[in-house]
């Protein structure tokens, strides 16, 4: 056993990303949509860290820090929107909001 091939790390990131995408498309509750988005961002961050460790360069992990910052910002704004959605519609189902036709 001499190390992990870089492809295996990238394939793990791709599997997590596809699972997050499937969850994003097939769930209708806003809480699950936000959590699937977190999974997808996390998979992208995993790909950055895999690249960083494969090349032994620290830039990938600096990029990982920025992805975490983005995920924190996205989660806070998304959860605030979710609280507002619940206060107006008493539900988290996204198809309740689709009556809003601009």
């Amino acid at each position: 056993m001499t190390g992990i091939p870089m492809e295996h790390g990238l394939i793990l990131a791709v599997i997590l990303f596809s699972l997050g995408l499937a969850g994003l498309m097939l769930r209708r509750s806003m809480l699950f949509v936000l959590m699937s988005l977190e999974v997808m961002l996390n998979a992208a961050a995993l790909a950055f860290v895999v690249g960083s460790t494969a090349w032994n360069q620290p830039e990938g992990q600096a990029m990982f820090l920025l992805v975490i910052t983005l995920a924190a910002a996205e989660a806070s704004v998304g959860l605030a929107l979710m609280i507002q959605l619940y206060q107006r519609f008493r539900s988290l189902e996204l198809h309740e909001v689709s009556r809003m036709r601009g």
């Binding site: 001499t2 190390g3 870089m6 492809e7 394939i11 895999v50 494969a54």
Partner: peptide, 14 residues
């Protein structure tokens, strides 16, 4: 798997 990067991660600490 088509890219054939051929790199391995040997766990060197960053």
């Amino acid at each position: 798997s088509d890219g054939q990067a051929g790199m391995t991660i040997d766990g060197e600490l960053i």
